[in-house]
Write a protein that binds this DNA or RNA. Structure first.
Lengths: 154, 154
DNA sequence: AATCAATTTAGAATTATTCTAAATCTTGAC
DNA sequence: GTCAAGATTTAGAATAATTCTAAATTGATT
């Protein structure tokens, strides 16, 4: 590891520690590992998929710990929970303002950026105070749309 | 039952039958009952809550049937599925364009009307074809907001 | 080094949902 | 009307996702 890489690792660790400490959580090897798993492959894995990936470098990690770690990361604002229709909850380390696009064809999940502090034209009843907007778009992704129109035109 | 009430019941039954038949489903007493349960108390019950309510007038109805009926009703466009963070799926017979407001305080779920055919300012990547937008707003509902501000100002 | 609280662990328990196979019902063909 | 075919319902088992429990471990603090 070069000096630069080393400093990078330290900085990332500080970033996680800071967030965790806002909610009274400590940085543990398990929490670090779970967070790394999410950052390394941003395909919105389920808790169980995170568990399998985390186990590769940390074979003794338990199922419950992965749930606990994900919970802590969500609570301290490092990770977002994503809910597809039924099925398991998925997790996403992208904390920019964004929503999710679900492709009905390939079942892929795509992040789509959103403007910050927007109410998206939703007219709430009197006195209702919104805290956050969750938007999920269902449809056909770019790749699948192309593939479908090709097979139609043949 | 008056003649008017009778005609009303017949009309409703026709409405359900029409929707079900678009997907090759029949109208059965169980499907009718499950749909009635949803219409009678529009509080976004879970499948299990629907089961308990349906049982009152139809004690022999089974758990699996309630799931099957809800599935059929969703597939033929009479009912919408609603997903809260984790937890059981909820069901809603309001098919107008609307989204849901979740009160973090009282845990109530409120329907909020939306304009039809709107993309809510979401900029999708090239070639992505949206089919439907699901919007969930989390925050504090009107009643809870009032209660909270009262207790602060005392 | 001793103490206290936080965290992790394995495994059990719970909750939500789906599956299975047999029984029942409905519809259309005769 | 009767029969066959297919749809639907049923009870209960199976599976999936998540949470709980209690003991062991870890880490920070005195």
């Amino acid at each position: 590891m070069t000096k630069l890489e080393f400093l990078n690792v330290v900085e990332k660790r500080n970033h996680i520690t800071e967030h965790l400490s806002t909610r009274g959580f400590r940085l543990t090897p398990q929490r670090q590992r779970v967070y790394d798993v999410l950052v390394q492959k941003r395909d919105h894995p389920t808790a169980d998929e995170v568990f399998v990936r985390a186990k590769k470098q940390m074979p003794e990690i338990s199922h419950a710990t992965v749930y606990n770690c994900l919970d802590a990361l969500v609570k301290c604002g490092l990770v977002r929970q994503v809910q597809l229709d039924r099925g398991a909850t998925r997790f996403c380390p992208n904390m920019h303002e964004h929503c999710h696009f679900y492709c009905d064809e390939c079942e892929g999940i795509f992040d789509v950026d959103l403007p910050a502090d927007e109410t998206f034209g939703v007219q709430l009843p009197k006195n209702f105070k919104p805290a956050r907007f969750e938007i999920a778009v269902h449809g056909i992704c770019g790749e699948c749309a192309k593939r479908k129109s090709n097979s139609l035109n043949r």
